[in-house]
Simulated scan of single mutants.
Amino acid sequence: MNWGVFEGLLSGVNKYSTAFGRIWLSLVFIFRLLVYVVAAERVWSDDHKDFDCNTRQPGCTNVCYDHFFPVSHIRLWALQLILVTCPSLLVIMHVAYRKAKEQRHRSAGGDDRHCMYPNPGKKRGGLWWTYLLSLVFKAGVDVVFLYIFYRFYRNYTLPRLVKCELPPCPNVVDCFISRPTEKSIFTLFMVVITCVCIVLSLIEATYLIGKRCHECLQASSGDSCRHSQDGALSHAEPADTGGTDALEPPGNPSPYPLP
């Protein structure tokens, strides 16, 4: 894996994220990706090799292992990490599209031409929707994978002993899982971190929506204040003009002679 390219992608995501997004990115990188690469792969490296059943019937062990482990934890976590980080890359691609469009706009009209995107990374317009939808998608992916893990492995734990009676097993056989306690601890740890990431994504989405509503309310209140001031000035000017005409009507000279 090229860590330089990955570091560049992370720095780009971190640059255009909010404070909650930076915390989410740190959790994903440290507590999910590094734990997956450094520890989890080694823990599950012997899951098939050390899955023992008390039978010598050919094919029985493979069938029982496939029944109790339809998809490995490692492969599910890898797919989850890929899907949960793709929306952040879409935000970077949207910013890059804005920068390229702004560059073409300037090259066509010169530097004196009005800028289309003075700050391409500012979350306004389409970029705001892209960022918000990315948060919803990330939270949705984590929720779906939590449900998948729960369906495959009840209570997110692994039993020490499983009984299998699938053909070609001759009868009910006992199968033993390798290091079930350690694997259960890692599974629960990843589940807790996933729940924290879901909460952070929802908080960030709520923050974005609340901030946008606050800005809209401020803009609408500012417009209403300007309209009320303009209306007051327009009503005050005719009143002053009428008062001056009443004091000094035309054609009526002053009774006092000028010096």
Rank of each mutant, 00 (worst) to 15 (best):
F69S: 08
F51Y: 13
V196A: 14
G231S: 13
Q103E: 13
T181E: 06
R98A: 13
C64R: 10
S72M: 02
N155K: 13
K163L: 12
D223Y: 03
A39T: 10
I82E: 03
F145D: 06
H94V: 00
S224I: 07
I185S: 02
S26L: 10
I30V: 15
L9I: 14
L33E: 07
V196K: 03
P70S: 14
A40L: 11
C195L: 14
D46W: 04
K15G: 00
F152Q: 12
Y117L: 04
S72P: 01
T194G: 13
N54V: 05
V71W: 04
Y16N: 03
F31M: 08
A19N: 14
L258P: 11
C213G: 06
T241C: 04
A219C: 09
A246T: 03
L146N: 14
G242L: 08
L217N: 15
F31S: 10
K123C: 06
N119P: 00
D223W: 05
V63R: 01
L83T: 04
L10C: 06
V173H: 01
L200F: 08
S224V: 06
P167C: 04
N62R: 02
C216P: 05
E102M: 05
L247C: 06
G109V: 09
T241I: 07
V162A: 10
L208V: 12
C195F: 09
C164S: 01
F29E: 12
G231H: 08
C169Y: 01
V84G: 07
A139M: 09
L133V: 04
G110M: 03
P180A: 00
K163H: 11
Y153K: 02
A78Y: 03
E204H: 01
L27H: 02
P250D: 13
V172E: 10
R22G: 02
C213T: 13
W24T: 07
I193M: 12
G126A: 12
L133D: 00
L233S: 14
C164H: 00
